[in-house]
Simulated assay, not measured.
Amino acid sequence: MNSSNQAWEHLGELTEEDAMHVLTRLFSMYEEQEKRDPGNKASALFFRNLITALGQTSACNLNRR
């Protein structure tokens, strides 16, 4: 799997439980990377993007109510 299209396809095929496992695994991988190298730009970008996505999702959910 080497393209974003392939990743989207695989994500679309996941169950909710498996999607949560993927998110948890990604979080753990970047958390470990950050512990090994506190200044790592990739892990900082991941967490910044994750926080942005969480905020956007929360705002979207609030707007639906």
Rank of each mutant, 00 (worst) to 15 (best):
M1D: 10
M1Q: 11
S3K: 00
S3E: 00
S4K: 05
S4G: 00
N5I: 01
N5D: 07
Q6Y: 04
Q6K: 08
A7F: 08
A7Y: 07
W8I: 13
W8Y: 09
E9A: 13
E9I: 03
E9T: 01
E9K: 15
H10Y: 10
H10P: 00
H10I: 06
H10K: 13
G12H: 04
G12S: 05
G12L: 03
G12W: 05
E13Q: 14
E13F: 01
E13A: 13
L14R: 04
L14S: 00
L14Y: 02
L14M: 14
T15L: 07
E16Q: 07
E16R: 06
E17A: 12
E17V: 09
E17G: 05
D18G: 00
A19D: 01
A19H: 03
A19Y: 06
M20H: 04
M20N: 09
H21V: 14
H21M: 12
H21D: 10
H21F: 13
L23K: 07
L23F: 01
L23P: 04
L23V: 07
T24Y: 03
R25C: 09
R25M: 09
R25H: 12
L26I: 01
L26R: 06
F27R: 12
F27S: 08
S28W: 10
S28C: 08
S28L: 11
S28H: 14
S28I: 03
M29V: 04
M29C: 05
Y30C: 10
Y30R: 13
Y30I: 02
Y30V: 02
E31P: 06
E31I: 04
E31R: 15
E31Q: 15
E31G: 11
E32S: 14
Q33W: 01
Q33T: 04
Q33F: 02
Q33K: 14
Q33S: 06
Q33R: 12
E34D: 06
K35H: 12
K35W: 10
R36T: 11
D37E: 14
D37M: 03
D37W: 05
P38G: 03
P38M: 03
P38L: 00
G39E: 15
G39Y: 11
N40H: 15
N40Y: 05
K41D: 15
K41M: 15
A42L: 14
A42Y: 13
A42H: 13
A42K: 13
A42P: 11
A42D: 15
A42G: 09
A42V: 02
S43E: 01
S43Y: 00
S43C: 02
L45T: 01
F46A: 07
F47K: 12
F47L: 12
F47Y: 10
R48S: 13
R48F: 11
R48Q: 14
L50N: 08
L50T: 07
I51A: 15
I51T: 12
I51G: 05
T52H: 12
T52S: 13
T52A: 09
T52E: 14
L54K: 11
L54H: 08
L54T: 07
G55W: 01
Q56Y: 06
Q56E: 14
Q56F: 04
Q56C: 07
Q56H: 09
T57W: 03
T57R: 06
T57Q: 08
S58A: 15
S58G: 07
A59T: 11
C60Q: 13
N61S: 07
N61Y: 00
L62H: 06
N63W: 04
N63D: 10
R64M: 02
R64T: 04
R64F: 01
R64E: 04
R65A: 03
